[in-house]
Amino acid sequence: MAVDVGRVQQCINLVYLEFYRITGVPLKDTFFSSLDEYAPKIIKLYRSRSGAFGEDLKSLLDKLDQKTTNVVLHRKTTALQGLPVFMRENTNSLFKSCLDTDVEDSNLRGTQMGILSVIEDDGATADTVNGNVRCFSVIIEEHIVVDDLPDLPTALALLFGLIYALNLKYPDELKYTFETLQKVFMHLDTNLSARVLSFRNKMLRM
């Protein structure tokens, strides 16, 4: 199925404009500038502490180490995917995946807000290390609200923007992950919780 690039870009631009109207902060420039700066430090922090987080963080780093193309993008993606793990929250409630032949309501059920990776069905499982990601979608209240997005950082930035545009509350099980995006990446508040402050300080020392 062909992607309507113009429609997707229009959705992206509308979210960016509404976020700026609400906060006075440019979502795209601020988010990606912070990600450019922080991703290498975050990956170093993950590597230094991976043993304290069981297999989840180690698995993300192993997948990153297997990448041979688009390494910078994969590094940024891994930095974001690891946030819920490092915050000891449920990463599976934020990041989901399915095959492009299996995008059904069952994949969305119970998801208050999250990112869906749609994997090309070429005999692989719904696992981004074994298959090629065709696109990313933003889920809110069990519905795909924006789809055909090119990468996970863009999808997560849009999800964050939509939270503001729709005046949504962060899910309790992901409150520290979204606080990190709000206060560390977007610089929208300086009053950090102890957990997020600890993460920021450790990351900046890398």
Rank of each mutant, 00 (worst) to 15 (best):
P40V: 01
K41T: 04
K41N: 07
K41C: 02
K44Y: 00
L45D: 01
R47T: 00
S48M: 09
G51T: 02
F53Y: 15
D56W: 08
D56T: 03
L57F: 08
L57N: 01
K58I: 09
S59R: 14
S59M: 09
S59Y: 09
S59A: 13
L60E: 15
L60C: 07
L60Y: 11
L61G: 09
L61M: 10
L61N: 07
K63R: 15
K63V: 12
D65K: 09
Q66C: 13
T68L: 12
N70P: 00
V71I: 15
V71F: 11
V72Q: 08
R75F: 00
K76G: 01
T77F: 04
T77M: 04
T77D: 05
T77V: 06
T78N: 07
T78K: 07
A79V: 07
L80Q: 03
L80T: 03
Q81C: 11
Q81A: 09
G82R: 05
V85F: 04
V85P: 01
F86T: 04
F86Y: 11
F86H: 00
F86K: 00
M87Q: 05
R88K: 13
R88I: 00
E89Q: 05
E89S: 04
E89N: 02
E89T: 05
T91R: 13
N92R: 13
N92K: 13
S93F: 08
S93A: 09
L94Q: 07
L94V: 11
K96V: 11
S97W: 03
S97H: 06
L99A: 10
D100M: 08
T101M: 05
T101C: 08
T101K: 05
V103S: 03
V103A: 05
V103Y: 04
E104P: 00
E104H: 07
D105Q: 11
S106E: 12
L108P: 01
R109C: 04
R109N: 08
G110K: 06
G110Y: 03
T111P: 01
Q112Y: 09
G114S: 05
L116D: 03
L116M: 11
S117Y: 02
S117H: 08
I119K: 02
I119V: 13
E120G: 00
E120T: 08
D121Q: 08
G123A: 12
G123R: 14
A124Q: 14
D127Q: 12
D127P: 03
T128M: 14
V129M: 14
N130V: 13
G131N: 09
N132G: 12
N132F: 13
C135H: 14
F136K: 06
F136C: 12
S137P: 03
V138K: 10
E142I: 04
H143P: 00
I144Q: 10
V146M: 15
D148W: 10
L149D: 03
L149A: 05
T154M: 14
A155S: 10
A157T: 13
A157F: 07
L158D: 06
L159W: 02
F160C: 09
G161W: 07
L162V: 06
I163V: 09
Y164Q: 02
L166R: 08
N167P: 02
N167D: 12
N167E: 13
N167H: 05
L168N: 00
K169P: 01
Y170K: 07
Y170V: 04
Y170A: 02
E173P: 01
E173R: 12
E173A: 11
E173S: 14
L174T: 10
